[in-house]
Computed example of a mutant assay.
Amino acid sequence: MCLLCHDYLFRPNMAQENHTAFSDFILLGYSDLPDLQGLLFLVFLFIYTEILIGNGLIICITETDLALHTPMYFFLKNLSFLEICYTSVTLPKMLVNFIVENKGISFYGCAAQIYFLLLLGGTECLLLAAMAYDRYVAICNPLHYKLIMSKQFCLGLIAGALAVNMPIHVGQTYLVFILPFCDSREINSLFCDIPPLLELACADTNINKTSVFVAAMLLVIMPFFLILASYVKIISAILKMPSAESRKKVFSTCSSHIIVVSLFYGSATIVYLSPRSKETEDINKSLSLLYTILVPMFNPIIYSLRNREVKASLVKLLRKKM
């Protein structure tokens, strides 16, 4: 990443020039639908509330129920916490923009939004890979499961995911905000993101596109192939099981994770790695909603409806509260 930044290191005044020229950006969002702003506000408010309540309940039951103090649910708890943080980076500002005329976001606010969006999104990619590895060890190496998936190892995976993402995305964000921007400051998106911002730049953005590609390969594609390799081994082990009931039970513990991985990776890969054009702007805008908002909304539903232990713990918690 340092090599990618090298060409810009001797341009110290560029960020200041950008900030002087652009005190803020304008997030267009769905401003082309003025009559639907109130309805969109209510829809997105409902989604945000569901994300907070659903993921909050997952955190609560995995923390309070001793039966769920296992590596699998430790990762699920951290995934839910990440989803709350991830959506809180974008959704509150989106909700405000639906009800106010000034849809601006400050230069530094936009930079912060991009950094934390990338940091939390990249961490989620690695966390999903860790969850796949956990299932691989549990199914393919059950006798050594507790020894391999120790508490220290699980904490190390979470800390490692954050440690890897932090410096990479500092570089990513820096490379974007030292670019000179053209006269237009309108971002055709619901939140600040690298692809729509690069379209406003008045300079060669090949270094930025290369850095996005390299980061995507490291933090999206490589974890995806690790997940894929884990599930090849898992499916192979499941097919060797003599009992159909055993195969069904083991597969059910993996199905929720497979659904979440498919939704998250599919939409994120299309947005960040596919060529952009005027014709695909609206499609990419909708796909960005899928991985930033709808996946976090569906996560608690997917994991609770398809997981017997989570449902039992949720019922137990609700009875206790009532």
Rank of each mutant, 00 (worst) to 15 (best):
A312E: 06
M14K: 01
V271W: 01
G109K: 00
F81C: 03
I114A: 06
Y231A: 10
F225V: 10
A244Y: 13
K93G: 05
S256W: 07
V295R: 12
P296F: 10
H69G: 06
L294G: 02
F46A: 06
S31L: 10
I259E: 03
S106F: 14
P34S: 15
G266Q: 05
R308P: 00
F22K: 03
H169W: 13
L219C: 15
T20V: 15
G29D: 12
D7C: 02
T292E: 09
S23I: 03
Y30D: 13
M72T: 13
N102W: 11
Y30Q: 11
N141I: 11
F41Q: 08
K209P: 00
L40S: 09
V43Y: 07
D282P: 01
A229M: 07
C202R: 08
E279P: 04
L289V: 05
S230H: 02
D32T: 07
C182N: 09
N206D: 09
N284H: 02
Y108L: 07
L155W: 12
E186A: 15
A15R: 00
L318G: 01
K151Q: 10
L82P: 00
L239N: 15
K240R: 12
Y303H: 11
R185W: 11
L33Y: 12
R308Q: 12
I235E: 13
Y265C: 13
A15W: 04
L219Y: 07
A201N: 03
F298Y: 05
I234E: 15
T269I: 05
M166N: 11
S288R: 00
L273R: 11
R319P: 00
F251M: 14
K249I: 01
A129H: 12
A67R: 09
T70L: 11
V310Q: 08
T269A: 14
M149P: 02
I168C: 15
L147I: 03
Y86N: 06
R11K: 05
I84D: 03
L294H: 01
M322F: 14
L118M: 11
